[in-house]
Every structure is written in C-alpha cells, then in structure tokens.
Amino acid sequence: MSSGIGRQIFKRTFTSRPVDGFTGAVGNTPLIYLKTLSEKTGCRILGKAEFQNPGGSVKDRAALGIVLDAEKRGRIKPGGTVVEGTAGNTGIGLAHVCRARGYKCVIFMPNTQSQEKIDLLRMLGAEVYPVPAVAYENPKNYNHQARDFARELDNAIWTDQFDNTANAEAHYRTTGPEIWEQTEGKLDGFVCATGTGGTLAGTGRYLLEKSAGKTQVWLADPPGSVLHSYITSGGKLKERTGSSITEGIGQGRITNNLGTFVNDVSGALHIPDEKSIAMVYEMLDTEGLYLGASSALNVVAAVELAQKLGKGSTVATILCDGAYRYQSRLFSKKWLQAKGLEDAIPGHLKKYAVLD
C-alpha cells in the first residue's frame, strides 16, 4: 500500500467561514494527489476530498446553498419545512442544515438506494419516504412526489435540486475557486459525473472563465444515462441503454443546472461499471481511500482524460463521498456476483470483498 495516504500537495488557501446557525463549515476540502495513478500516467491526478464535508459528501454544498438562497428570497421562514427528492446525499446534507437552522426535513427517495443512506437520514431526524424508482416522466417519480408534498404545506419549500440553479451557483462560488487556488491556476482538465448537473456546471463555469478557456471541462457518464450520447453527438442524440450500480449520477434529461453549462462542455467519457468497481478497490489498496462508486468512476475518468491531454498534464476530479454508505453492496461478494461484477475486482484485491 502507498505510504503517502491522503497526500495533499496544494495549500488550503481558503479560510472556512461558518454560516450563522450552521456550525459546520462546508467546503475548503483538500485536494489530494493520487500518487500511484499519477506515476502510471506521467500526469498529476488530483481528487477533491468532498467526503470531508460535515454531511460526508459534495452535496453539502448544494444543500446549504439552496437553503440560504431560499432564506434570502423569503421563500421560507423559521420553523418551516424543507422537502426534497434525492438519491440520498443531498438529503443527508439538507438534514444536517435543517437541524442546525431549525427546519423540518422531509425526503422522498428511490427505494433502490442503499439502506445505509436511509438509516442515516432518519437518524438525523428527517422524515423519509422510499418510493418505487420510476422514470422522470412518470408522475410517481420521487422528485414529483416531493414537489407535490411541499405544495400541500404552509411555510415549506421543495428545494428542487435538479432544476434550482442555486445548486450550480453554490459550486461556482466555492468549489471552482477552491480548485483554482489549490492548483495555483495550473489546471489542464476537470472532469466529473453529473446527476443534478450542479457540480459540473458551477465548477466548470468558474474554471473555464478563470482560465480564459484553457482548462478543459469534461463530463463522465455511467451506463444508463443519455448525457454521453447527447454531448458526443452535439446535442442530437439521447440514447439510453443499460443501467449502472452507481447511485445519484447519470441522467435521462438536461436539467436546468446542467443546461447553464452543457454547451461549453469539452467532451464526455463513458465509464462502464466494471472500471468503477475495479477503481473502488484500487483506491483502497494504493491510496488508503475508501470511496463510493461514483467517486471511483470520477477517478477512472480523470485518468482517461489525463491520458488524452498527454504527459505532464494536471487533471482534477471530485471524490464525492466515502464507501461507508455503500459498503453492504460494494464489498459484498453475493451482491457483486448478482450484478455480474465480481470478476471486475483485480485478483489480488478480492481479499477486500469480505461481506457475504
């Protein structure tokens, strides 16, 4: 195993500024140098350690940004209710924010999500409604159910993380500037997957503006999403085939958040689940980083983008969250076998798949 676990090669130049009523400062996470992959590619592969946010994921930024925006606009008053449809991490971020700022939190989520997420949400005091996973076009989609629930309440907001552009704005104001400062402006590429589109759009817009167009911004996409085909065809195709074990990423449409930036995306990479699973185990073995599948997918994409840009290039991505919320799946032999993914784990790393 690498002796340089969790290397941080750039100074944390941002000062945490706790928000009144929210004691955990969101953001200012370190940028980690992924030594083994960097040495293999001859590039600098960097991961933004978003699992260090108070709620444990990159979604804390959107959660806090959306609630603060609602308060600023007078859309919610003290004692109100915050309602959202989420695959889990945004809900967890909202649950933290709501506890700190005195709101009730109600979450609708697909019943395909990990039990760890559901348990954590309830532990944080959120009211959770797991509902059948259906397409966005179906009126029973979890997002529509959250919207309709909020409409029936007084002093309540549906945060609408997919189409509320306060999400992307939060990343434009925090994630993008942090990465730019931490790399001292020496950044050739940025790549990440997208669910709501907020992280890619907000971060990408800032980096593109600050670099005067020199930093390439790419989208990474899992199976079952239309975004890779949409971007690679110049907006002509929306082909959706297959499905993915990753949670909270991939999309069947262009959200309002992604729509603020989609025409400026440099390109897209399709990342199969087999590569994501292999990277989950590789990161644990070589860097001591316990990452979820979407984070691993982002790392795979960062490596592929670095190879496209050439030796000596610097590429950053997002380490969205840790594997704690998915360990009953990602490290279960039976679950991986059921998904046809056990063979994706490199032979010498199968020792980590310890759960039955």
Rank of each mutant, 00 (worst) to 15 (best):
G21D: 02
K11E: 14
D69K: 15
A156G: 04
S266N: 13
G85Q: 06
N256Y: 03
A296Y: 03
Y326M: 07
V58M: 11
Q8K: 12
R73Q: 15
F22G: 04
T81A: 04
T36K: 15
L207Q: 07
D154I: 01
V26C: 09
R147T: 02
G185H: 05
L269V: 15
P110Y: 10
L258R: 09
R12Q: 14
K339D: 06
Y142Q: 09
Y206D: 01
F51C: 04
N28H: 12
V58G: 05
F51Y: 15
N257I: 01
F190A: 00
V303K: 14
A338R: 13
F14H: 12
D154T: 14
A323C: 12
G250M: 04
L289Q: 10
A302Q: 10
W158D: 15
R147C: 05
Q8C: 09
K48E: 12
R44A: 07
H228N: 13
S16R: 13
G91W: 02
L336H: 11
G91H: 00
Y172Q: 03
N53A: 02
V131W: 02
Q113Y: 14
D343P: 00
S243D: 13
N164K: 07
N111P: 06
Y326Q: 07
M279D: 10
I5D: 10
V191G: 01
I9Y: 11
L349S: 01
F22D: 13
G74E: 06
V58Q: 06
G102P: 11
D264K: 15
L309V: 07
T260F: 01
W180D: 05
G195D: 04
A62G: 10
D69Y: 05
V97E: 02
G202Y: 09
I245K: 11
V106W: 12
G80R: 09
G27Y: 02
K210A: 15
I66G: 08
G310W: 05
K59W: 03
A301I: 10
T196N: 03
P18Y: 04
R99T: 14
C192S: 13
E116F: 08
T36G: 03
A302P: 08
G79R: 12
L330S: 05
L305P: 06
S57T: 01
I45Y: 00
D148T: 13
G24M: 04
A220I: 12
L94V: 04
N141L: 01
D188S: 02
H171N: 05
M123E: 09
F14K: 05
T286S: 14
V280H: 14
C43T: 13
I32Y: 08
G24F: 05
E84F: 03
V303A: 09
T255Y: 01
G312R: 06
K72W: 00
E84L: 02
D273Y: 14
D119V: 14
L297G: 01
I231L: 15
L120G: 09
P78H: 05
